[in-house]
């Protein structure tokens, strides 16, 4: 028999059955995503165009490739956390909740992997056509 009072048992637990760490990561990734998003928006608006040569030579520069890799990582991490919370709040059936959370996790890791690989490929291939 647990000696915990009911408040102690639920403290820090939300619809997911856990939460403080998830909540905190969401905030941390949002700060990082915000800074990198401002960098990305300014960089894209300052590029002379968005044609292949311009984009590829821009991403071949470490000072573009590295922030882009970080942006992809942080953005996908943040959207994975966020979408999962939405599912936890609105999907009440345990089976479908598990299904959607798995789907979100798999899809965001898949998307992030493709995007990271693409940036690395451009970066390592150099700016040569």
């Amino acid at each position: 028999m647990s000696m915990e009072i009911p408040l102690g048992r639920v403290r820090g637990l939300g619809a997911a059955g856990e939460g403080a760490e998830h909540w905190w990561q969401e905030r941390l990734t949002s700060i990082a995503a915000f800074l990198l998003l401002v960098w990305l928006a300014v960089s894209l608006l300052r590029l002379p165009g968005l044609d292949h040569r311009t984009v590829a030579s821009w991403l071949a520069d470490p000072f573009a490739a590295v922030p882009m890799l970080l942006f992809v990582g942080v953005a996908f991490w943040h959207l994975k956390l966020g979408l999962q919370v939405v599912v936890e709040d609105y999907v009440h059936d345990d089976g479908s909740k598990l299904f959607w959370i798995l789907l979100i996790n798999f899809a965001s890791i898949l998307g992030a992997a493709f995007a990271l690989f693409a940036v690395l490929k451009i970066a390592f291939a150099g700016s040569a056509e």
Binding site: H52, V55, A56, L59, M68, V72, A75, F76, L79, S108, G111, F114, A115, F117, A118, V119, K121, I122
Partner: peptide
């Protein structure tokens, strides 16, 4: 996210 992946993959 889908658009970002599409853009980067196409560029690569």
């Amino acid at each position: 996210a889908a658009a970002l992946v599409w853009w980067l993959l196409a560029a690569s």
